[in-house]
Design a protein around this nucleic acid. Structure first.
Length: 255
DNA sequence: GCGACAG
DNA sequence: ATCTTGTCGC
């Protein structure tokens, strides 16, 4: 597909149950090893990301942040249920919204924006906030353009990324409860320790220092910062009821 | 050269 | 992310 390192992820996507019927037809129609053609889509996307990365502003564009929004999405197959929750500095919910979107791209590390970005952009539309936070990386990305950064460019809004695991970079302890994340010698993020660690990186139009302080103000040393935790919860509730969820309802009805 | 790889 | 029961521990 134009990015050898993504082969495992692509393979996993193609072997999902809902893709098997297509795989069967493809195999009978031609020999994929001799008649395979590609315009290397991932290579084109990677080049676009590298180009867009130059537009990222890693400085504060806002002086005051009052409304902080968190966005997240839950899935049923490729159906994305996106949610956005806006809170004030004290963590109180100011407003929230929901959206559904049919993802048309598989999850491939370093191309996460192309799967989840559209759903997140859709749910954010129409909501008012100063800073957005998303469950992903920003500039702590192979081409300095993680979902947080790419979404920030699209929305033209201040945004930061929060993640529980590292995509790329080296972690070096800075002090008590905080570590730096370096990529090619430059600082691309910080890891907040003192509990299950979370990694904060610049998305767009916000400094790393301010991004970290915003997160710390809404984080209780465990789990995700409040806006993201609330968005995550809301997104999951939006999904169609599944068997495991119905069980609780039935138990209540029977008791 | 091989492997690592957000949600 | 999602599939999933009970279980170990503060």
């Amino acid at each position: 597909m134009g990015d050898p390192a993504s082969a495992p992820a692509i393979r996993d996507s193609l072997f999902r149950p809902d893709f098997l019927r297509y795989a069967d037809k493809v195999n009978k129609r031609s020999n994929p090893f001799t008649s395979f053609q590609t315009d290397k889509p991932l290579l084109r996307l990677a080049e676009k990301q590298a180009k867009l990365a130059k537009l990222i502003i890693e400085e504060d564009v806002i002086v005051d942040w009052e409304k902080i929004a968190g966005v997240d999405a839950a899935y049923v197959g490729d159906r994305a249920y996106a949610a956005c929750v806006v809170v004030d500095r004290s963590g109180r919910v100011v407003s929230e919204g929901s959206a559904e979107y049919e993802a048309c791209f598989p999850y491939v590390p370093s191309y996460f924006y192309y799967r989840e970005g559209p759903a997140l952009a859709a749910v954010v539309r129409g909501l008012d906030f100063d800073v957005l936070m998303v469950n992903a990386h920003g500039v702590a990305h192979p081409r300095r353009l993680g979902l947080a950064s790419q979404l920030g460019l699209e929305l033209d809004k201040p945004i930061l990324g929060v993640s529980t695991s590292l995509l790329i970079g080296e972690v070096k302890r800075r002090g008590e409860g905080i570590s730096d994340v370096f990529l090619d010698g430059s600082l691309v993020g910080v890891r907040l320790d003192g509990g299950p660690p979370i990694i904060v990186s610049v998305g767009h139009m916000v400094s790393l220092g301010n991004a970290a302080s915003i997160v710390e103000a809404l984080w209780r040393k465990v789990g995700l910062p409040r806006p993201l935790a609330l968005a995550h919860e809301r997104a999951r509730k939006q999904r169609r009821p599944r068997v495991s969820d119905l069980r609780n309802t039935l138990q209540i009805a029977w008791s």
